[in-house]
């Protein structure tokens, strides 16, 4: 009996697989076309429209958008009332990112280095669980926790530590009748809401640092602190940067938390929301929206120059 060296094609699936083998680019094109169309048209298209709008201006008397290219709208961003919003938002985003990084690192380190089996499952559950409930529910829950009669105030009263909260609330610029009406509250809720987005990439980055790397460092005479600075941190930096991109940009764009918690001072997101809605000033809203994009680009350029992506 002789068997042919070439097996007969059994049907369409065999012929398609053969086609993909002969022309690998066909498969790539089939896989990439739908998402690229979606991204290209919906995402990049709207981004281009946004950019375009930001170079238009609004006629101050008629309120009609003048479709002529001008930098006047960008100039308006530097008016004190608008510039305040930018400074406030960027400061908040930077502080939230720093706090998230400081809180996330030990958790991510524990999860990546020590947690096994059930502990690992508990870690993922603990980090992801808050993401399963509605964002609004969480924010309103925090409003109640931070309110004057809330659980935090009650606990402080019971433990006679209420002076800490009143002390914090008397700091100039951070005043409020309770934490829920102070910028401190806004900060706390931002940190809580965005923390998972910092922990997960950080944990993924730390997981990729092999144990032998840490042992090699100790073996060569490094203390824990030296190992952290010269080995762990540089190797985890891409993860930290990835996490900080989330926390930073999410804080830059959020318009709900500062509306519900805090002293109602304007943030970029809120300004955009008001300008494109009630005020109908689409060009200025667009200009505001371009600011976070610019800041993120600058941030990434600095991170790249500092070598944050060398270990990728």
């Amino acid at each position: 009996m002789t068997t042919s060296a070439i097996l007969p094609a059994r049907g369409l699936a065999d012929r398609l697989t053969a086609l993909f083998w002969r022309r690998p680019k066909v498969l790539l094109a089939l896989l990439l076309t739908p998402p690229l169309l979606w991204l290209g048209v919906v995402y990049l298209g709207s981004l281009a429209a946004l950019l375009l709008q930001s170079f238009y201006s609004i006629d101050e008397f008629s309120g009609v958008v003048k479709e002529e290219f001008t930098l006047k709208t960008y100039g308006e961003l530097f008016r004190p009332s608008n510039f305040d919003i930018l400074v406030r938002t960027v400061t908040m985003a930077a502080l939230v990112t720093l706090a998230c990084a400081a809180l996330a690192f030990p958790i991510a380190y524990f999860a990546a280095r020590y947690a096994k089996g059930h502990w690992k499952a508990a870690f993922y559950l603990g980090v992801m669980l808050p993401l399963w409930s509605s964002y609004l529910v969480k924010v309103y829950a925090w409003k109640l926790i931070l309110a004057k009669e809330g659980i935090l105030g009650w606990a402080a009263e019971q433990t006679h530590t209420g002076w800490i909260i009143s002390g914090l609330l008397s700091i100039p610029g951070l005043e409020g009748s309770s934490l829920s009406t102070s910028p401190i509250g806004t900060f706390m809720v931002f940190v809580y809401i965005w923390l998972p987005y910092m922990i997960l990439p950080m944990q993924a980055a730390l997981e990729r640092v092999p144990n032998s790397m840490l042992e090699a460092s100790a073996d060569l005479g490094a203390t824990r602190g030296q190992t952290f600075r010269t080995v762990v941190l540089p190797l985890a930096l891409p993860g930290i940067i990835a996490g900080s991109i989330f926390t930073f940009s999410l804080t830059l764009g959020d318009y709900i938390i500062p509306q519900i918690i805090g002293n109602s001072a304007n943030f970029i997101g809120m300004a955009v929301y008001q300008l494109q809605g009630t005020a109908g000033n689409i060009p200025l809203a667009a200009a505001f929206a371009v600011v976070p994009i610019l800041i993120m680009l600058i941030y990434l350029a600095i991170a790249r120059r500092m070598g944050a992506f060398d270990a990728l």
């Binding site: 032998s212 790397m213 190797l235 070598g307 270990a311």
Partner: peptide
């Protein structure tokens, strides 16, 4: 065994 050289 895996050399454990620092990649960065």
């Amino acid at each position: 065994q895996d050399y454990a050289l620092f990649p960065h």
